[in-house]
């Protein structure tokens, strides 16, 4: 929890580490969309190669990627098995009562498996090579054009950075309140259902009250330091878009074109 600000970031100096968060974010989002353009093994092969290239270029051990997969295993298996059981196909290879597994449903399940794994790998590349704060900067800068339609982009960026900054503090508060209540003889997860449920209240209310007091103090401190909204503000942190970032964007465009062409041909 103390490491929330680091997230899953693994410090490094690879080309992917040095890329601008905006280009990485853009490519990750685009990848999630174009993955639905792949309909056969060749399409998926392309996507697998693209992802593998990213993994290799990040110079981060594959074990970290597999670790990123772990919390999602249940979710993947759930989806894959349901696909297998409930997709109707003509070539039934196995049938038992209401369960029918066909070649089509099997292939479909494999594709869906890959779809999940690839998406997870892609977002893992992003979070392993970019610290959360830089990602927040990336979101703020990436949304920049929305300023024209009066979206308070700057405020959103500041808000993200403040919530990331206060997560460890609030986590400490939570631990402290839980210990204090324990010392006063409260048991968590003990007793009957009603008791268990009620035990949440004396934790959450003090937590919220003390946190909103923190938020009040913070607002006063921000004002005393001259904060009056995003207008006329300069930024200490800066992002630098370089040719490698343009290249990355070009690479995903090429992927998109290839996938579209292939789905037209086949």
């Amino acid at each position: 929890m103390q490491n929330m600000l680091m997230g899953r970031y693994i410090p490094g100096d690879s080309i992917i580490h040095r890329m601008d968060p905006r280009s990485k974010l853009l490519v990750m989002i685009a990848f999630v969309v174009i993955i639905f353009l792949a309909h056969d093994w060749l399409g998926y092969l392309l996507l697998v190669l693209y992802t593998l290239a990213g993994v290799l270029l990040s110079k981060i051990s594959v074990s970290y990627f597999l670790r990123g997969l772990r919390p999602m295993i249940g979710l993947i298996l759930f989806t894959v098995i349901f696909q297998m059981l409930f997709t109707n196909g003509q070539h039934v290879i196995f049938s038992l009562w209401f369960i029918k597994i066909s070649t089509e449903s099997l292939i479909n399940a494999v594709y869906i498996f890959f779809r999940f794994v690839l998406i997870i790998f892609m977002s893992t590349i992003l979070t392993l090579t970019t610290p959360p704060l830089t990602l927040a900067d990336g979101i703020e800068k990436g949304l920049g054009p929305l300023k024209k339609i009066k979206v308070p982009v700057h405020e959103l960026g500041l808000m993200l950075s403040i919530s990331l900054r206060f997560i460890p503090t609030l986590m400490d508060d939570t631990t402290m309140i839980m210990n204090a209540q324990k010392a006063r003889g409260m048991d968590f997860g003990e007793g009957n259902l009603l008791k268990k449920i009620k035990s949440v209240i004396p934790i959450l209310i003090p937590l919220f009250v003390s946190s909103f007091r923190r938020a009040d103090d913070l607002a006063v401190a921000m004002e005393s330091r001259g904060y009056q909204g995003g207008d006329g503000r300069t930024k200490y942190r800066q992002l630098k878009w370089q040719s490698r970032d343009s290249l990355l964007v070009v690479s995903i465009i090429i992927m998109t074109i290839l996938l579209i062409l292939w789905s037209k041909v086949s």
């Binding site: 500041l158 808000m159 993200l160 919530s163 206060f166 609030l170 946190s211 909103f212 938020a215 607002a219």
Partner: peptide, 12 residues
């Protein structure tokens, strides 16, 4: 400013 900090804390 208070609204900004409150929203950030809600997210946290």
């Amino acid at each position: 400013v208070k609204t900004l900090t409150y929203s950030a804390f809600m997210t946290a």
